[in-house]
């Protein structure tokens, strides 16, 4: 797909464009995974294929990233054009964390972001190297589900407390 020149042109046909959009999201995620780089701008390297000399223009790239945000697999960071692509979506993580807490008896205990991202807790590989913002979103999801509370320190979210 990445070698297909029309892939780098926004297709005027709406049906084709929808297919193209899906494929692009897939490509972006895989690229992030391969490069372990989760912050992207619309002019990121992923949108250019030097081998076939094609670049997806910025409008279309923004469209792709915005679409990802809409689906909850990415997030637009404030004050700039950078997008954060979630390696794992906050919703998935929240579910997993909740389940883990239930299975391992960590309910009602406080888990700091540091503990989670440094891998100090067993069998929570998905949280290793996780972004602070992602963790914050996990906390927010848990709060929304009334399964946890975000722990704050000096106005900054630093941990999660899983509730019953």
């Amino acid at each position: 797909m990445y070698e297909f020149p029309p892939f780098f042109t926004r297709q005027p046909n709406e049906d084709t464009w929808r297919l193209q959009l899906k494929l692009w999201q897939d490509v972006v995620y895989k690229w992030c995974l391969a490069n372990n780089e989760w912050r992207l701008t619309p002019s990121a390297d992923v949108f250019t294929n030097k081998r076939i000399d094609r670049t997806l223009n910025i409008d279309a790239a923004t469209h792709v990233l915005t679409e990802m945000c809409r689906k909850g697999v990415a997030e637009k960071l404030e004050n700039n054009e950078t997008f954060l692509v979630y390696k794992h979506t906050p919703a998935d993580l929240a579910t997993e964390l909740r389940q883990w807490a239930r299975e391992t008896g960590h309910e009602t205990s406080v888990l700091t972001f540091y503990e989670l991202s440094e891998g100090e807790l067993p069998s929570l590989e998905k949280f290793i190297n996780a972004d602070d913002i992602t963790l914050k979103r996990v906390a927010e999801v848990l709060e929304r589900r009334k399964e946890g509370v975000a722990m704050k320190e000096e106005g900054e979210c630093v941990g999660i407390k899983i509730t019953l």
């Binding site: 892939f7 780098f8 042109t9 046909n13 297919l19 193209q20 899906k22």
Partner: peptide, 29 residues
């Protein structure tokens, strides 16, 4: 193109039309 049989590639070298492989990829996916 409008009927989805073709797709386009806009480039400095000109506008070219390709068979719509997006559909192939979709089925594969």
């Amino acid at each position: 193109e409008k009927d989805g049989d073709l797709c386009r590639d806009e480039h400095i070298s000109g506008l070219k039309f390709f068979s719509n492989d997006f559909r192939l990829f979709r089925t594969r996916n």
